[in-house]
Design a protein around this nucleic acid. Structure first.
Lengths: 220, 220
DNA sequence: TCGCTTTTTCACGATTTGTTCACGCGTTAG
DNA sequence: CTAACGCGTGAACAAATCGTGAAAAAGCGA
């Protein structure tokens, strides 16, 4: 399923996580400090890294900073204290998620699944059409070179349409793929978000085409 | 309509669900525990599986995990307790929907309908003949390179004929496949839409051939 | 908790689309 | 030859869809 690097100085924790992850069908490597983690991240092509914050030699925080210099691999942090939260996110290290100790292995597995699910569509990098630039990897959208700020749903909606550019997408498909298979909501919800998305796209609002009786598509 | 596998250790529940589902036009098989379900899912080509969580031998949760190893068939879970919710969804087992007991059979049927509708695959192909181009994925039709705008019914009608190009289609078939099995309307309705479609196709209007006493076909 | 942002719901109206139906014309069967 | 039938058509009427704004609900950080 995915190749995972588990970084923690406590062997017990590494082992538990590894067992669970392998049961889920993932392939796992282990590292016991930040230095090891950085060098392994360089060579091994990991889909995700799970890292403890407090470790000897190089702590998780600086390890991620190092790793970020050459890779954008998703990282999930393990932290003993809630206070770490601020440090991690306040410094914008680029962590995808974090779990506080003590944690249940199940919880960590759920985070892994979630992160993998999220990072899957991010593989298609960037699309440019006229003055409209959609940078999925960096989660940026530019209209005539100027960055546009959008809400999360707007990004997701736009990215999904962009991944399927030129293809007719029904509201059902949108709800199921952008909102999630367990979303049971109003069809108008899609319309409303399309409205906002169009408004964000300004002069390129017509790139999003309404297919009456069906749904929408984006023409790029 | 669809082939359904119903899995529950209580015969009473199986019977009720089966009756309702068959009334809806579905074909049903039954299994009374997780082991049976897994092996039946392997051989039988089910469109959807409805499964209880609590069962002897192999519970619904692990049964789905097993089934997921070889199939992505949609699964709807039945559960006695709301607390199961977290377990199912938090762990990302790959369940499509979830109903808590006690449930009304109608509710389950509604979920089935919703899941089936979602998993319906999108049309993909594209057909070109002379100067007539039919792009089903993008919902486009071009006459000599120029895009033609049509109404939803026109697209659907044309696409259905195109998928069956060269084959005679009766009005009954058209009504039941383009309009829906539950449409009880006038035969002239088809004629009217054929008229509009021909008008949209301009010089290629004769690609749609009337088969007197039978119906229509498209020649591409 | 409060206040702000984002998401979702919902009802309304403008507009597009779908359906019915009667009539005319050509074809076919008797 | 002619009556019945099948089809095309236009126009009236009925229904559905979409965009929108406003308000409720949910989420989220301080």
């Amino acid at each position: 399923m995915a190749k995972i690097l588990i970084v923690d100085d406590e062997e017990k924790i590494r082992t538990v996580l590894k067992e669970y992850a392998e049961f889920e069908g993932h392939e796992c490597d282990e590292a016991e400090d930040g230095m090891q983690a950085v060098s392994m991240a360089k060579s091994g092509n990991y889909d995700i890294i799970i890292m403890d914050v407090m470790m000897p030699k190089l702590d998780g925080y600086y390890a991620v900073k190092e790793i970020r210099k050459f890779s954008s691999v998703p990282v999930i942090m393990l932290s003993a204290r809630v206070e770490e939260y601020d440090r991690l996110f306040g410094f914008e290290v680029g962590v995808d998620d974090y779990v506080t100790k003590p944690f249940s292995p199940k919880e960590v597995m759920a985070r892994i699944a979630a992160v993998l699910k999220r990072s899957k569509p991010a593989k298609t990098s960037s699309i440019v059409s006229d003055g409209l630039e959609i940078d999925m990897a960096g989660r940026n959208v530019y209209v005539d070179g100027e960055k546009v700020n959008m809400t999360p749903k707007e990004y997701e909606l736009l990215f999904y349409l962009a991944e399927n550019k030129g293809i007719a997408i029904s509201r059902e498909q949108l709800l199921s793929n952008v909102w999630g298979y367990d979303f049971y909501g109003d069809d108008r919800t899609v319309d409303t978000h399309i409205k906002m998305l169009r408004s964000s796209l300004g002069k390129y609002r017509d790139k999003i085409v309404t297919l009456r009786g069906l749904g929408y598509k984006i023409e790029l």
